[in-house]
Amino acid sequence: MGMIFSLVAVIVLVAIAFMGAKQNLLGLFGVAIPYLAVLVFIAGFIRKVIKWGQSPVPFHIPTTCGQQKSLPWIKHSSLDNPSTTLGVVGRMALEVLLFRSLFRNLKTDMSDGRAVYGSNKWLWLGSIAFHVTFVVVFIRHLRFFMEPVPTWVNAIDAADGFLQVGVPHLLITGVVLLAAATYLLLRRIFNAQVKYISLPADYFPLFLIIGIAVSGILMRYFIKVDIIKVKELTMGLATFHTTVPDGIGVIFFVHLFLISVFFAYFPFSKLMHLGGVFLSPTRNLANNSRAVRHVNPWNPKVKLHTYEEYEDEFREVMKSEGIPVEKES
């Protein structure tokens, strides 16, 4: 149900962009909506992160995956169970760059009435392929927002197209991105357990990203657009001297509208794991609860009455009853 809803939503978005471009609402779809989307993205991102920053962490809750720092002769797992900030940074880097937690993914089967566990790396592979290629595709698009195009952007493009298949040359990341996103979608559809917990909020970003990738690939290899005019438009956006040249194909406006929706939707969705991974108390705390006391920030202020104060108050009475005191006066 959620899947159909999400698919229909993306199809409606494509139809909106298609009809908008056909109706020649190019200023709206080429300038106003992209600007609005970037504004919503930045403002929404800041708002969300500030909100997370203001949330107290009542308990010290790092997830631990290895031996805690203990006695000197017990081997400490300093990256899986970090006890210092440096360890936390290392663990976070491994998680963000290499998806270490997905690498630990297991599959469970019953064999002769016993549960047996086996390695299952497909989710890790699909996920890292998807994220890495997405970043490269994102960086490659800087050629539309920089003039002159920096050498390093051209170098990435050349490395990406080094197979030199066809003209314009086939970019590996585009193909891998689409394949990986499709795998992540099929996994949700065909894995019964994952399907059971999947919501429209899980399907929609996948369909949206697949829509963005498909429209981009169509535009590059099949339904050509005048790329010089496209860059005139995008440079107009980047320099705030907006211009909408005539004669860019409709497919470009579909691509641009879908990516605008992606940016505007980003801060309100699961896609915020981009910022959220750094703000997860389960990952950004060092497991030093034996060494450092974690104070719940909303604990009420307790009025303490120490033994010294107690003795000061009752010293005379205690002495007269023969109860020993620590200080005589």
Binding site: R143, E147, P148, V149, V153, N154, D157, A158, Q164, V167, P168, H169, I227, I228, K231
Partner: peptide
């Protein structure tokens, strides 16, 4: 080609 960052071989 330079404007669009295209390096045809």
């Amino acid at each position: 080609h330079n404007f669009a960052g295209v390096n045809p071989y």
